[in-house]
Write a protein that binds this DNA or RNA. Structure first.
Lengths: 179, 179
DNA sequence: GTCTATAACCTGATAGAC
DNA sequence: GTCTATCAGGTTATAGAC
């Protein structure tokens, strides 16, 4: 792994744990084992760094979703796979990358805000298309997708805080009975 | 309003907009029209300040919930009232006080984390008791309460980002058909 | 209670040597 | 590419005058 990739990976972890203002270039450099000026060599400021983090995260997250889809034979399997992944994030005391950036939007550029928003939209679209593959009639695909993602983010936030899996498990059983 | 109350109110607003690390004692003092040392006179550090903010917010939020309940004649009315309140927060480019503190938990004391967690638990309990007053059979009160609060927090996060009310309105119509 | 002044430190960012 | 050195500015926090 290149130094640049190492920095991106570590920045991603730090972002998920402490938010946009929760770490400095120095912290980041120390963990990776370089000096802060070396981090500046790759990323001229935090905004550029977060653009790289978001891109790397989106790619990895998309791959994970595809793996879940490949291994699933029902909509409930997909839901389980996604919830398992969120439980893992909560237990690592992390939060969603997009969620962190969304919460800390006040400290980000307009371009960055648009990118995060687009990532959420893409996720909603992906999920509603997956739901469409497993027909059910009670609710529209878009609506189910939207509610599921909203609840995932909120449940992750609260389970990380309470150090339990209550909210995410509650969401799991709820979704199971719904679809 | 006393200077202390002014500081708490302004700290609450700053927290909801920019998070725990999104403002300084100086920013706060400037807005209120005093010097930062005067803020330190009332609150020896940010943690103490947030304890006061959480207490003030909880009291106000509880009153708002009670008002919603008093003016409601159905569970759908209660849901509408709560969602309207969250839409207002999103449109002001704010986030939930407890949500912000939960996200930024890494920078808070253990005592503070416990208090935020207790506030979420109290909200879940309150809501499940309200739901119990309007009997319905599909889901348990606790489960509905948990999912609704999770989805509220997540939808608020995304609607604040997208500057729309899509997720919260989606949640509204979803809940209407559910209860 | 509110102020000035200041200590001690952290921050992003850059210039220039190697 | 990575470093040392450094800057200008922001941060919490406190001592002491009024």
């Amino acid at each position: 792994m290149s130094k640049k990739e190492e920095i991106i990976l570590e920045a991603c972890r730090a972002l998920q744990e402490g938010g946009v203002n929760g770490f400095s270039f120095r912290d980041l450099a120390d963990t990776v084992g370089v000096k802060s000026s070396s981090v500046h060599y790759y990323f001229k400021n935090k905004n550029d760094l977060f653009i790289a983090v978001l891109e790397a995260f989106t790619e990895e997250f998309t791959q994970n979703l595809q793996s879940i889809l490949d291994e699933s034979s029902s909509l409930q399997d997909v839901i389980d796979g996604i919830i398992d992944q969120f439980i893992e994030i909560a237990q690592e005391q992390k939060f969603c990358v997009c969620g962190m950036l969304a919460i800390d939007q006040k400290h980000l550029s307009e371009e960055m805000i648009s990118r995060v928003n687009e990532t959420f939209c893409a996720l909603r679209k992906w999920l509603s298309e997956v739901i469409a593959q497993y027909p059910q009639e009670k609710f529209s695909n878009e609506e189910l997708s939207s509610i599921f993602i909203s609840a995932l983010e909120g449940a992750l936030m609260m389970d990380r805080l309470s150090k339990t899996t209550e909210s995410l498990e509650s969401l799991r059983s709820f979704m199971h009975r719904l679809v």
